[in-house]
Design a protein around this nucleic acid. Structure first.
Lengths: 235, 235
DNA sequence: GCAGTTATGTTCGCCGGCGTACGGACGTCG
DNA sequence: CGACGTCCGTACGCCGGCGAACATAACTGC
């Protein structure tokens, strides 16, 4: 396994050298185990996290326990945007969907850097806008598209953030993310498997035919991806 | 009718005097007629708008024409946040839902003010966070709540931004906003009318029993409102 | 290798929202 | 005052996702 470096996070990598040198001493590498809650709804945030090789889901949880994922964050972004947006808390929950590591920064350091009005500010704002796009697209998708399409979209978004063609995730967890029943995922995943698009076995999903998966997905995937590429720059 | 002043917009009103004096000469009062498209999906934004007595809906429109409202903006906020977020465009459409007037600022002036790093920047960022909350809550609401509850939420959010107890809006338009069939609205509104909560007639809705309306709404309304109050300050 | 837990497959009735279609009521403008 | 357009009410079949319940199969720990 390659060593973890801050450059594995795209926001950090694109900072000018001066800012990187100023920031790096304050970055702390932390491990992000599967299922860990990075922040809870309404709790005061203490750090911002820059994922390197993990994925974090932003979830809204209703009082009755029902939930829905509103965005997913990988090495293209950061977890805890409300720290610099000024709110300090958000009504959402952030939970590690795929384990790995992340660099974190204390809220105070972040604010300090933010107030210098350098590239970090603009990078974070652009990222936040791509996050907004993702949330909005999720809202429309929840309204109009079939579960199977949403599953395809979700798989693609997760794969993009992981690299490779495999991810570990039970149907139960996917159902929580998408805000649907587990049985619905079983059926949809069964259909995809029958089509030869994926292979599924006890929490291991392998994508066999990515082009086909993209065909079966709704356009929401491309909308999110192209806007993200536009705002954050490719590569 | 009272004269329109910039202070009718809550973001402008809360700016320190120095910033207000600097900005006011550049504000231009424009009329916002019902149905006007403030910006189109993907189009380059030229101005940011600060509503005084109108309501603007942010819509996502799919290729097949289906749509869904992802947020609604009144005098508590601004239309065109992507201007300072760095993206310049967004994949959404902004359309006037209730006519009135707004102050607008050119993108260049806005950027100029934004870069001064004064209160305007923080006010806009806090507002953007409340917008994010609204979008996320809409996504969950679309997933889990019944149409009737969503209608109540929508009525309440619109009323809050208008003041008073009446709004003009056909069922057809409401259906577009919520991303459902017109018939669904007819039925839900019919039930509310039978309960004596609203009175409905040819594009005129009058709320007769607001407390009841709040009861029938999902908690999403309160979630959005309380977060908005927290971030923007009440009054 | 057995027991208990976890993950997946399957069924059945139910209901809310969709697509479609039609009819009636109100308003307005010539 | 009559014709047309807008707005609203209603009906019917359809289907996807829900809720609940149960069956199997694969891992895990002992």
């Amino acid at each position: 396994m390659a060593a973890i470096t801050p450059e594995m996070n795209q926001i950090l990598r694109r900072l000018p050298q001066a800012e990187r040198e100023r920031l790096y001493p304050h970055l702390r590498l932390v491990s992000m185990p599967l299922g860990a809650v990075i922040y809870e709804s309404g709790a005061r945030l203490r750090h911002i996290y820059f994922p390197t090789d993990c994925i974090v889901s932003l979830l809204y949880v209703l009082k009755n326990g029902a939930s829905a994922e509103i965005a997913v964050v990988g090495n293209e972004g950061a977890v805890g945007v409300s720290l610099f947006m000024g709110g300090e808390t958000t009504p959402s929950r952030a939970i590690v969907q795929s384990s790995g590591q992340a660099y974190r920064l204390t809220g105070a350091r972040l604010t300090q850097e933010f107030e210098r009005h350098g590239e970090m500010l603009h990078a974070l704002l652009r990222y936040t806008q791509s996050l907004i796009t993702q949330m909005a697209q999720t809202a429309v998708c929840n309204r109009h598209h079939a579960l199977e399409q949403q599953l395809c979209r979700w798989l693609l978004l997760s794969l993009d953030r992981l690299g490779g063609d495999e991810l570990r995730m039970t149907q139960e967890l996917i159902a929580n993310m998408l805000g649907v029943r587990r049985e619905g995922i079983t059926e949809a995943a069964g259909r995809l498997q029958k089509l030869g698009v994926i292979r599924y076995a006890r929490g291991r999903i392998k994508v066999l035919d990515r082009p086909r998966l993209e065909q079966l997905s709704c356009a929401c995937y491309f909308a999110v991806k192209s806007e993200s590429d536009r705002l954050l720059g490719t590569g």
